[in-house]
Design a protein around this nucleic acid. Structure first.
Lengths: 298, 298
DNA sequence: TTGAGCTTTTCCATTTCGGAAACAATGGCA
DNA sequence: TGCCATTGTTTCCGAAATGGAAAAGCTCAA
């Protein structure tokens, strides 16, 4: 039967992109890495890595094998954590990927509350707006906003996402508030950072509006600052501008229209038979935190 | 990181119930088994097996660990098979559990057809009417008839199960056919081998009938022979008595009533991210064989 | 009470494993 | 274009691990 170390080494070689780098990471000499990759390939009777002396790439068999090996390794990790930690205590390292803005505003502030209940757990949080492949990147879970489709992942809904049109009071004072959807054409519209069209739902059904405005950016934070500064009308999520709405820094316009409803805030994780306790506990924590009605909606 | 051999040894010790037996099965001396179990426990910091010199039992931690280890081992097996066999060829051993009667009548006759397409595959088929724990018993899949609930398994429907009331023509000639459901009280009823009540559905809704008759047995085959021999009325599946209905050896009675519809013939297998090719191919084969309308219904 | 069968420990031969060094090959950079 | 740093591979050797036989201690059944 395969030596487990070989699988670990193989996975590390793939993720780091080089045998030498894997050797450094794992504390082995390059010679060992080379020998064990070779042994693994010999036993499998297949070439897993296509290598020139300068570069390494996965063969098709290697890619499929790698996908599987990742699952196996985390499975072993989970089994060991279960047996060691027992009684479903969280321990080890919990690796999370989350959207930048949401992570900063609604995850980061609550982390200490979770950590003080789980002293044996280390958190490793990466904020990015790319939809990274969480299993290939080695994340235990991700927080996502959107419509979810990837079938190899399991999603648990954390909260609905409401998006509404808003502007600053002084913008409204200067330009007036739109009364019907067509009025938007006469306003400054601030597209979202991903530059999407606005999918709106209203009393007359749904429509797609293509926002045109003076500002295009890839940063959600800049759009946010711009609309608060009075630059125009934006379609923002309630989790993003809830406090500003309450404080009066922003007001809702065209309240009969809202962003398309099939967006959700979700926790996603690889589908496995045994969910690590650390992942389950953290998702439970977030779900309890955001509740049936999130605090930013109240 | 854990040595994979330790996990394999641990799993074998649990399944065989003794270290010595595991040693014999794996070709190791008892000394080695003992040492490696001890090492595994030391690293996990938990006792996995409670042992008296004469007997071995799993601790709670050991049970949970064992469940996980089984999944890991089959995962590795699948990963290796994938890389070695490539292009999703079936190979290795496919272990199947199936109901005795159905297996004999509707699986066994078709096995050669499957085997000739997959020469590298060995089949290992166990017929039993117990609902065995397929993952603990080391089966890759099972064919089941019934209502399915086990959440740790995935079920794929192969065919609907129709059950209807029938008797032999000479029984009907001697005793007459029942005209309405209440007439059953005046007939010999042959309960199924599991001695269940009959859940029937008819034009007036559903009801539960408690069949009373001269014959009680745990063998489905005996009930089947008895009804053909004219001993009474039985509720039988169409896959069981289809040919007899067609040949006239049996006739349907009370045709407006049928057995409860929420029974299905299904293939079940452990939920895993990667389904072994051998399992997928065999289930596809059965599904194609039984089709949308099974051949025994035509 | 005895004996068979089990687990565990001890000691030893063997195998495996990891590393240093030497070598070959590749791509970046001046 | 030519140099050089980096990478993968091979060889050889010391160190660590693995597996087995034998002995000991224990439990259950006859």
């Amino acid at each position: 039967m395969t030596n487990l170390g070989d699988l670990e080494i193989f996975a590390r070689v793939v993720s780091s992109g080089s045998m030498s780098a894997a050797g450094r990471a794992l504390g082995f000499s390059p010679a060992v890495i080379s020998k064990r990759i070779k042994r693994l390939e010999d036993r499998l009777g297949t070439r897993l890595l296509q290598r020139t002396t300068r570069q390494i790439s996965l063969t098709e068999a290697g890619q499929g094998f790698y996908d599987r090996v990742l699952g196996i390794l985390t499975g072993i990790e989970e089994a060991e954590a279960y047996a060691s930690g027992r009684s479903s205590q969280a321990q080890g390292v919990l690796r999370i990927s989350a959207p930048t803005s949401f992570g900063r505003m609604h995850i980061a502030p609550h982390l200490t509350g979770f950590m003080k209940d789980h002293l044996d757990l280390k958190l490793h949080i990466v904020l990015t707006d790319d939809f990274t492949d969480i299993v290939a990147e080695g994340f235990d879970m991700a927080v996502r906003i959107g419509e979810l489709t990837d079938s190899s992942l399991v999603a648990r809904k954390l909260a609905p996402v409401r998006r509404l049109l808003c502007a600053s009071p002084d913008y409204v004072a200067r330009n007036g508030a739109p009364n019907e959807i067509g009025d938007l054409a006469r306003h400054f519209c601030l597209p979202a950072h991903n530059n999407d069209n606005w999918k709106l739902e209203g009393p007359e059904g749904s429509l797609v509006w293509h926002p045109e405005g003076p500002l295009v950016t890839n940063s959600s934070e800049i759009v946010r600052a711009a609309v608060i500064a009075g630059a125009g009308i934006a379609l923002r999520s309630t989790w993003d501008i809830g406090p500003e709405l309450r404080s009066g820094q922003l007001v809702q316009v065209l309240p009969q229209w809202e962003g398309s409803k099939n967006l959700t805030l979700s926790a996603v994780y690889p589908s496995r038979q045994f969910l690590p306790a650390k992942v389950r506990l953290f998702i439970d924590y977030l779900a309890a935190l955001y509740g049936p009605v999130p605090y930013w909606e109240q």
